[in-house]
Write a protein that binds this DNA or RNA. Structure first.
Length: 281
DNA sequence: ATGTCGTGAAAGTCACGA
């Protein structure tokens, strides 16, 4: 299975480019973020003509997530159990949820397409929301794996965190001043490892960014961030055979500001490869 | 110039989010 995650920054603006990528790269499963449309506005036909099923979730022009798959999509879940909501000026447990998470089972793998809240600023209510959202996601993943330790589970998407200093090449992103690099955000990201989920791409692609701001020549200057990830459970990570970050997708006509991140899996061969770095020691 | 995008609502430009 070839699994990819891509923040497409509007699927309607980039549907041709997105489908062409999937076909050219033989992608079996694509997790999309920021589709920026309602569920019913998703351009299903273009994916179906290329042989993909689609499960999408969008409430308005903001956020929105989807999963496209060559194999049938089963057990679609909108939002994860315990996912916090957000409403300006309000606090509490029952705020309306945003369209930031969709889960589905494809070929025996439980895949989540996740768009973690941006945070906006260190003193913004969205920052607290982001940290809470991440903690609830970690708790959900830990609970899921406690019940089913051998589940091939993948948390994929735009985490809006650059986990290490090497993942931050943007001079305007500064610890102590902006989101994405603060110690609490990095701790929230690291906590997924304790929950049994590892970044399956980094051992194979140790450096490189996945996002470059549209402004101020960030891409030509290569001043990007690595914020898009595929985190896998042990059963998932053991099946990983290769990984790619498709930097070239930031080039050309109307690119997204993010590029696809790909993991190649051999699920039949899980736990039987000696040639790759051990993700779980 | 916070210098670029995408969206919706109102409108032939603006507010918002990233």
């Amino acid at each position: 299975m070839r699994l990819a995650t891509w923040n497409v920054n509007s699927i309607r603006a980039r549907v041709t480019r997105t489908v062409e990528f999937c076909v050219r790269e033989h992608i079996d499963v694509l997790a999309m973020q920021e589709i920026k449309c309602k569920t019913e506005q998703f351009p299903y036909a273009a994916f179906e003509e290329a042989g993909y099923h689609v499960a999408a979730h969008g409430l308005n022009q903001w956020n929105g997530v989807a999963i496209a798959s060559r194999e049938p999509i089963e057990d679609v879940e909108i939002g994860f159990p315990g996912m916090p909501g957000f409403e300006k000026g309000k606090e509490g447990p029952d705020l309306p949820q945003e369209a930031r998470a969709i889960g589905a089972t494809v070929g025996g793998v439980r895949v989540w397409s996740l768009y973690v809240p941006n945070g906006r600023g260190l003193n913004d209510p969205h920052y607290v929301y982001k940290l809470d959202w991440l903690e609830k996601l970690r708790a959900y993943a830990a609970d899921t794996l406690a019940k089913d330790p051998d589940l091939p589970l993948a948390l994929t998407g735009d985490f809006n965190i650059a986990p290490t200093d090497a993942d931050n090449g943007d001079p305007t992103v500064v610890e102590g001043a902006t989101t994405h690099v603060s110690p609490p955000e990095r701790a929230a990201f690291a906590a997924f490892e304790s929950a049994g989920l590892a970044d399956v791409v980094r051992p194979l692609i140790p450096t490189g960014y996945t996002y470059w701001d549209y402004k101020q020549l960030r891409f030509p200057r290569n001043e990007g961030l690595r914020i898009d990830f595929i985190l896998g459970s042990r059963a998932f990570a053991d099946a990983v055979q290769g990984a790619e970050i498709h930097r070239n997708e930031r080039k050309g006509e109307v690119p997204s500001d993010h590029v696809p991140v790909v993991a190649d899996l051999d699920l039949a061969d899980a736990g039987d490869d000696d040639d790759l770095p051990m993700i779980f020691g």
